[in-house]
Design a binder for these strands. Structure first.
Length: 481
RNA sequence: GGCCCCGUCGUCUAGCGGCCUAGGACGCCGCCCUCUCAAGGCGGUAACGCCGGUUCAAAUCCGGUCGGGGCUACCA
């Protein structure tokens, strides 16, 4: 039987990094086994679900490059992959379960339930509701007929226990005294997550349910439901959760949690994917930078780590730098162009685009984030803006003024205006003035870029062009007096 | 409170009873390279939570303990 997995987020929030990792593991598993990766929307909670979140999930998944074979937008045999459009099916299953005695109408009030739980906890017993406050079936039917509101609960067999083999966790057992007679249909007739999700997994032929550990304790419910439906059990795999740097559950206060936020912050999708994959999975050898196709080839769910991982951006930043450097120059320049234009608040003309391509390789090897590129090249496309700290540190040093003036004179008459020509001329000047490269070149850097940190000097001058280079040197010389 | 899951450098991890003097990566520190900053090269720092048990031998198996996390809704 071929592998079928699904990623089924609820559109009640943006796709966050934890969800991204869950989607990725599903994707890797499906691709490794040549199976299908399905995208479903578990939107039974109409109050909290929004179209905006749904859109964000789709876009984030596409950005990461995790294409799905079936489901939202791409369609498939099931018709709809939105739970909100399958209500009738869930109600039908609920009716069947009631008919065969696996579920019942429940009239327990919120007060009764709360009192039961409170007392159970106080006396050290399980707070799982066991149906003790329910009327006998004949009474129930009468009350229902009289129009009394009721939920539908699943009748968990008691005593009993459910044991299953989780691919990442091993054998797990839950005693049914810990599993409550959970609601499958709300009093308004809509299904709860447990029902909708399980029915869909059965109907869609899902073979492996790969999801977060937050659902581990709910798995007995899903297994019991599947059994009551007379369907074959899926294999389960529960991924440990992602934590913040303080070891607590990852949340907004730890910084960005939305996948989109990383795209906007200048991260590359392949770097993000690579980093996420390594949060809980290792290819086994000492490899760290692993391209997606290689991950697909080597991924094994059984090797996924049981421990919760801390989402720490230090390594992600480093990895992003690695991926930036792996880009060919043309792609890098292309990726960075809109960011540069946004920073300058204008578009670049053809000549400037060519200049950007010229300087691109020199910033490419320095960048960790695409978003830090604009400020590094700004001096080439906008007017000079001196960083006072740099100026004070460099331009007041002995020899700074002679270097700037000397460079001015030489470059004005330089025949060979090229990176090599500029370097040759300036090195000659250093020798003549008996200045070290550091002492003689730093003032020039500040003069043309405004900062003591910039792309390489000769390359920067070449990109800037002779006219502007000299103008800036003159401007700096004047400012030093 | 009850139940379940987890516990190797600061972080992500390798390790599946002897190859462990515990390996790799990030970070951090130092050196080299060098026109700045990076990148790169080289080196260093740093961990089996604790206590028992099994065994000739334990990071690896078992028990306990402590710590972290999850669930305990007519949320998912």
């Amino acid at each position: 039987m071929s592998v079928r997995v699904r990623f089924a987020p609820s559109p009640t929030g943006y796709l966050h990094v934890g969800g991204g990792r869950t989607a990725l593991y599903n994707y890797l598993f499906a691709r490794h086994h040549g199976g299908s990766f399905i995208l479903r929307s578990d939107d039974t909670d109409r109050a909290r679900s929004t179209a905006e979140y749904q859109q964000d999930i789709l876009e984030s998944l596409r950005w990461l490059g995790l294409d799905w074979d079936e489901g939202l937008e791409v369609g498939g045999d099931q018709g709809t992959y939105r739970q909100s459009e399958r209500l009738a099916r869930y109600q039908e299953v609920a009716a069947e379960l009631i008919a065969e005695g696996s579920a019942y109408y429940s009239f327990a009030t919120a007060e009764q339930l709360e009192a039961f739980r409170e007392e159970a906890m106080a006396s050290g017993r399980s707070p799982a509701y066991d149906g003790r406050h329910e009327p006998d079936p004949a009474d129930a039917m009468a009350r229902l007929a009289a129009g009394e509101p009721a939920t539908v609960r699943f009748a968990v067999p008691r005593p009993g226990e459910t044991t299953f083999v989780d691919v990442v966790r091993g054998t797990v057992t839950f005693d049914h005294v810990q599993v409550d007679d959970f609601v499958i249909l709300r009093s308004n007739g809509t299904p709860t997550y447990h029902l909708a999700s399980t029915v869909d997994d059965v109907d869609f032929g899902i073979t492996h349910v790969i999801r977060g550990e937050d659902l581990l304790a709910s798995t007995p419910k899903h297994i019991l439901l599947t059994e009551a439906m007379g369907a074959e059990q899926a294999t389960y795999a529960h991924l440990s959760l992602l934590m913040g740097p303080d070891g607590k559950k990852l949340s907004k206060r730890h910084g960005h949690t939305a996948i989109k936020a990383y795209r906007d912050a200048g991260y590359l999708a392949p770097a993000m994917v690579n980093y996420l994959a390594l949060l809980g999975w290792s290819p086994g050898d000492d490899e760290t930078v692993v391209p997606l196709d290689e991950m697909v080839r080597r991924f094994d769910l059984a090797e996924v780590s049981k421990n919760p991982a801390i989402f720490d951006t230090d390594k992600l930043d480093w990895m992003n730098g690695v991926y930036i450097r792996e880009l060919d120059v043309a792609s890098f320049a292309e990726a960075v162009l809109p960011l540069v234009e946004e920073d300058l608040e204008r578009s670049l003309d053809a000549g400037e685009v060519a200049t950007l391509r010229e300087i691109a390789p020199h910033v490419q090897e320095r960048a960790k984030l695409l978003s830090e590129v604009p400020e590094q090249v700004r001096f080439v496309f906008a007017g000079i803006e001196y960083d006072e700290g740099s100026w004070n540190k460099v331009m007041t040093k002995e020899g700074a003024d002679v270097a700037v003036k000397g460079a001015c004179e030489r470059l004005a008459v330089l025949d060979n205006w090229s990176i090599e020509g500029i370097e040759g001329s300036l090195r000659e000047m250093l020798a003549t003035l008996e200045l070290s490269a550091r002492k003689g070149l730093q003032p020039l850097r500040v003069a043309i870029s405004g900062s003591s940190v910039s792309p390489p000097l000769f390359e920067s001058m070449a990109a800037l062009g002779r006219e502007r280079t000299i103008a800036r040197l003159e401007q700096a010389a004047a400012r030093m007096e």
